[in-house]
Design a protein around this nucleic acid. Sequence first.
DNA 1: TTGAAAGCGATACCAT
DNA 2: ATGGTATCGCTTTCAA
Lengths: 333, 333
Amino acid sequence: MATIYEVSELAGVSLATVSRVMNGNTRVSEAKRTKVLAAMKELNYRPNSIAQSLASNCTNSVGLLVSELYGPFFGEMMSGVEGELRAAGKHVIVAAGHSDEASEKDAIEFLISRKCDALILHVDAVSDEYLLDLNKKGTPVVVINRYVEGLGESCICLNNELGGYLATKAVLEMGHRQIAYVSGPMWKMDVRERLAGHKRALKEFGCEVPDSLYIEGDFHEEGGVAAMQQLLKQKQPFTAVVCANDEMACGVMNCARDNDLDVPSDVSVMGFDNVIMSRYTFPHLTTIDFPSGEMGRMAANWVRHHIYEDKKKPLNTLFEPTLVLRDSLRKIA
Amino acid sequence: MATIYEVSELAGVSLATVSRVMNGNTRVSEAKRTKVLAAMKELNYRPNSIAQSLASNCTNSVGLLVSELYGPFFGEMMSGVEGELRAAGKHVIVAAGHSDEASEKDAIEFLISRKCDALILHVDAVSDEYLLDLNKKGTPVVVINRYVEGLGESCICLNNELGGYLATKAVLEMGHRQIAYVSGPMWKMDVRERLAGHKRALKEFGCEVPDSLYIEGDFHEEGGVAAMQQLLKQKQPFTAVVCANDEMACGVMNCARDNDLDVPSDVSVMGFDNVIMSRYTFPHLTTIDFPSGEMGRMAANWVRHHIYEDKKKPLNTLFEPTLVLRDSLRKIA
DNA sequence: TTGAAAGCGATACCAT
DNA sequence: ATGGTATCGCTTTCAA
């Protein structure tokens, strides 16, 4: 592999000049530029990006931490981040945090050790303080789906409360009043926000629901099944189940079917996230759209603008969820 | 950030000695090692991995190229790769190839430019020659789900032909004889292999199927819907549909339902891949297990052994698919 | 075992 | 506009 030395020699110019034509930031006479370009071509020269990184103190790589690398939700997000960043010539280093504090910290350390220019994080186990500290210590951080006071507009958020509200409002408007709710793990912030939205809608409609219709799930299909089983075992009647994510909604629907209940004639089901899968379920799931791909792209753009181009363009970092009406929700008398 | 110089100064030893205790390959007296370790701790020293990479000509990073970052199939694979590699302290740089030749080549160039120590590729658009060439030119490559003559055991393969055979054999054993087949894009090697297995099973059972029951799909849900619509429009009867992947099988099932056909009473459906989603569909999809997570882990291990530890352990690079019986397949008279 | 010094391949400042 | 040169932070001979 040819080096910059060989290029400068062949072109008959200095190292510095070669570097200049590569980076294009300083003016170089057309004559020399041509010679350098020719020499590069002849030697099939490719700059060594590691050497560039060492000298420039910029690695052109961004760390991306998600809870899991599988799962439709993160897939869309990663895809958005990678697409946008690669178009800008930046490398994406991925890691999984597994929604576990030690594991998330470990992953962040790992990404920092590779000297990423910035970190895009979807984390739920580490504390706000930890994230703030990280940022103070010099690692530019953008956080997805979480608002951290003090991180300002480098938080790419969805209005989860509004999502929860819209979901339940839609159910209420269909005439349901006995509404079960399957939440995610309550230690997660977004889970609590969605629940808050749910309660706001109930209140607005003057609808009171007994505690027994609230079940804490695990965000997985199995949790949805378990929740539905418990709901059915209880005597407390309900005509609709609002779920904090689509996976659990799938579980709920499957469990309903296993108990000879038709969705939506016997029971309506509402999801959250609008993962791809929700279009393929039977019946097609009514849900709240979470624009995870969009948000991934926005996170990538934030990094591009603030880290690589330092144009402090104001970016839209707050996203609004929307209702996606499909077949799992039906009007009742 | 402290450098190795400061550590050596504080510890009162040479640069080289500090480097030695870091790498642990050369013997260092216990006395000095202790002093160095203490100095490191005191300065909160973290080696600069970029400088290490430049000096050692090893970046400790592996490029991972998949068709799409979303989608259950690749998610599992990436998860396997990342888990294994991070445990070994290696960084994973991801890129998407979008099953397009130009895009795949572009992504590979991109990963090489970052001086990845090795590349793990799931590609279907680039030619065998291109991959061989890549390897010859010095980029260690491991290929997933594709056998390239000359790349030897750095191909992590599934026996797709056997998978196709097992799928159709199961359908035949349930008594079906009028079997439709929805393939993937025929320019993909694995698609042709699966089809070959399908035909072998048919032949073995002395079953002849008219050409009109073969439809070329696109591996997506929409393609499954379109294929089923075409099948239903034709007069040619069929009692089962074998699909080359689960997504299309979902489409087929949804389309069947939209046409008031019950799965599996009216028509049986067979998938391929056993993506997570197949457990959540209604009815639960009978399919062929593709151990993509396992294969990802194996690819990562290949890299670990051959690139980082150069133990030429023989690894199991050929995986066998297995039948997963669920509810979408039913015995007929 | 230990240290001195020569790279690794670029960038960037300072002269000219 | 161009060249010389120090620098980035570490690894790795080569002597001692």
